[in-house]
Design a binder for these strands. Structure first.
Lengths: 132, 132
DNA sequence: CCGATTGTATCACACTTTGATACTAAGTCA
DNA sequence: TGACTTAGTATCAAAGTGTGATACAATCGG
């Protein structure tokens, strides 16, 4: 359900955050769903419980999760948030896309080769009958 | 031409790398162009020269720049690389796009609202007569 | 109440980032 | 050639960040 890589240059807790956000974004984790306890997920991933706890906390601070000591952690964000995107979100997201596209351009991708990748990503999150 | 933020969670040298890659990707910096000396760019940005040197070195290792002690640093990568993208590049780029799109989905963006943003990013790098 | 389970806080260690400083190589000009 | 400037590089220290070991606190079930 979730994996991390010790060899990755990305910090472990950031990998967990990204993985959980991915599961939430695609609807695998929906509002009210319980997450595994920090100790269990840490054991499954072979890492320290603090690292998982930190990821949970960051997502809690972001308003996606809710943790109660002794009870557990659940998802509280629906996939489409009630109030829609804010200006801050847009800026951050545009920066993320720009970095990825710059990377693609320098790596030698053509527009024709990158567009199908983008379409597949969009289809993955915002379901639409496949174009093929 | 380039700015960095001390407040950003992203490391300074990574900000410089991303900024230079952006300039290269959009063609502002082309093959053969000289980059400012590490001391000058460091002074302009108000940071240490080692930080700039590290960014230059990382891009040199990536094959985008060439540095010669005593002479300077130049761009050696054309925007479209000779051999085209490799499998590693594709994986990394897909991961970057997925993270940005997940972010957008969770932030409440609809597919209709994200698509124009994507199109504008693509137009920015792979010029095409504007659709407007 | 007592124990089990869960998230949280504290502390230590290792690695990374950033900076201060010194060194080395290439060019310039007398 | 030799002195000087300009360029990237190497070395070392300080501060910050990531990860882990351990102990603490809150909740639930018997």
């Amino acid at each position: 359900m979730l994996t991390v890589s010790l060899a990755s240059p990305i910090a472990l807790h950031d990998q967990i955050v990204a993985g959980l956000r991915d599961l939430i974004a695609r609807g695998t984790l929906a509002e009210g769903d319980e997450l595994p306890p920090v100790r269990q997920l840490a054991a499954d991933l072979g890492i320290n419980l603090n690292t998982v706890a930190r990821a949970y906390r960051e997502l809690t601070d972001s308003g996606l999760l809710a943790s109660v000591r002794g009870r557990g952690t659940i998802v509280i964000a629906t996939v489409e948030r009630a109030l829609g995107p804010r200006a801050d979100d847009r800026k951050r997201i545009e920066a993320g896309l720009a970095a990825a596209f710059n990377d693609a351009k320098i790596a030698g991708f053509s527009r024709e080769s990158i567009e199908p990748i983008v379409q597949r990503q969009l289809d993955r999150l915002w379901k639409r009958s496949a174009t093929s």
